[in-house]
């Protein structure tokens, strides 16, 4: 049977894609950020997941406001990274795992999660930057797992509630664990932490709230479901709502997790960057 090894979270700031392309990992601005990743590289090398489920939010490449799915799951043989309009280098396509995708979609719809299935889905920096951070050289890293993208809407309100996000993850766990093949799966939650790009409040960062979220998502994620969506906007910033992706990931890990590494750094671009590696029991 399939099993879930653990979950990894990271911010997916586009500037990171440029920093990687220019090899700025040891630059004084970037070093405190990139220092959060070697332990994750070692864990991945040791665990060698077969499939990565990458939970991210599209930023206007795969979806537009004409049709905006609340939850979309990729079911493609490959996922193309395309031009986003402002010049981060495009990567080669990422191989998919469509049989597992369809198993997940079947299981989740049975569990009353109404999914948009995508046999074509261009993936943006929200998907590719974490892949590059965890599998340097992606998609050409020799250990690159096959990928399943899951995108949740944080572009347009109403966005999902934090409870729904956590419940989504729980249903995703059930789906993966019922897959008959012996494969190892890792789940990514990308985006966040606090940041706001738009309005007179642009540049807002909230360290105290981020640390509260980082602490509770490990051992007490249920308490975070008490945060309302607008409270999340208020405390994490308008784009800090990407924390929903972390909640989805956390739900997929089950109750018993061990925190293996954590990093938190302000600022990368406009963002408080957070990274966590959680291993399942």
């Amino acid at each position: 049977m399939a099993r879930i090894l653990g979950g990894i979270t990271t911010s997916h700031i586009p500037a990171v894609g440029n920093a990687i392309a220019k090899n700025l990992q040891d630059d004084p601005y970037w070093k405190p950020f990139f220092d959060g990743y070697p332990k994750i590289h070692a864990w991945i090398k040791e665990q060698k997941p077969d499939v990565v489920i990458n939970i991210y939010n599209d930023h206007g490449l795969g979806f537009f406001l004409d049709r905006m799915p609340t939850f979309a799951i990729g079911a493609a043989h490959e996922y193309r990274n395309e031009d986003e309009g402002w010049g981060i280098p495009e990567l080669d396509p990422f191989p998919g795992a469509p049989e597992l995708s369809w198993h997940i979609i079947e299981s989740m719809v049975s569990d009353e999660f109404d999914i948009t299935s995508c046999q074509e889905l261009p993936v943006d920096h929200g998907f590719t930057v974490p892949m590059q951070l965890f599998w340097p050289g992606a998609p050409h890293n020799p250990d690159m797992p096959r990928a399943i993208p899951i995108s949740a809407n944080t572009v347009q309100h109403p966005i999902p509630t934090l409870k729904r996000a956590l419940d989504f993850g729980k249903a995703l766990r059930k789906a993966v664990l019922s897959y008959p093949e012996d494969i190892k799966v890792v789940v990514l939650g990308t985006g966040g932490l606090s940041h706001q790009l738009d309005g007179q409040r642009a540049g807002f960062i909230n360290k105290e709230f981020d640390l509260y979220c980082l602490e509770n998502i490990v051992s007490n994620p249920e308490v975070l479901t008490e945060i309302s969506r607008l409270e999340l906007v208020e405390k994490a910033g308008a784009q800090g709502t990407e924390f929903l992706m972390w909640m989805m990931m956390r739900g997929a890990l089950g109750d018993d997790v061990t925190e293996l590494t954590r990093n938190y750094h302000i600022p990368i671009s406009n963002t408080a960057a957070g990274t966590l590696l959680l291993e399942c029991a």
Partner: peptide
Amino acid sequence: DYHVDIPGTTIFDGRMAMKGYALN
């Protein structure tokens, strides 16, 4: 959930999505 006013922040909801469709 729309009762909160967050200074300096526009909640991009259906109302704004309609208003901004052409620009977006």
